[in-house]
């Protein structure tokens, strides 16, 4: 699997560290809403198909990348810097297994 780092170019997956689901947005630090925190820390969309996720180019420039990748084919369709990605807000009212 190759991921094209915007700094370093196409690099092998072994240079990267997977940092998980990129659909999550950290709640307001002052929030005490346990449900929202629980969703952030434990719940995952885990789709079979296109997945927004974070990878760190840990064996290279160490930037975190917002990657869209298909979990069925491993085809990477987009890569950008996570800090620029303007992180997609997750819907905290998604129906979660733990809640229901």
């Amino acid at each position: 699997m190759l991921i094209t780092c915007p700094y370093c170019g196409p690099r092998d997956v072994s240079e990267y560290t997977y940092q998980g689901d990129g659909n999550r947005t950290r709640p307001d630090p002052a929030s005490t809403d346990q449900e929202v925190w629980n969703a952030y820390v434990y719940d995952r969309l885990n789709p079979a198909g296109e997945h927004h996720e974070i990878w760190q180019h840990s064996g290279g420039c160490r930037a975190h990348l917002a990657v869209t990748r298909n979990t069925l084919t491993h085809v990477v369709s987009s890569v950008s810097f996570a800090r620029d990605a303007g992180h997609k807000k997750s819907d905290s009212r998604r129906k979660t297994g733990a809640k229901a």
């Binding site: 079979a48 979990t71 998604r94 297994g97 733990a98």
Partner: peptide, 19 residues
């Protein structure tokens, strides 16, 4: 292995699981 996928059909969008 496919829990997320099947549970989504039941209307459960997220699970404390990654495949």
């Amino acid at each position: 292995g496919h829990t997320g996928h099947v549970m989504r059909m039941a209307g459960i969008d997220t699970m404390p699981i990654e495949s």
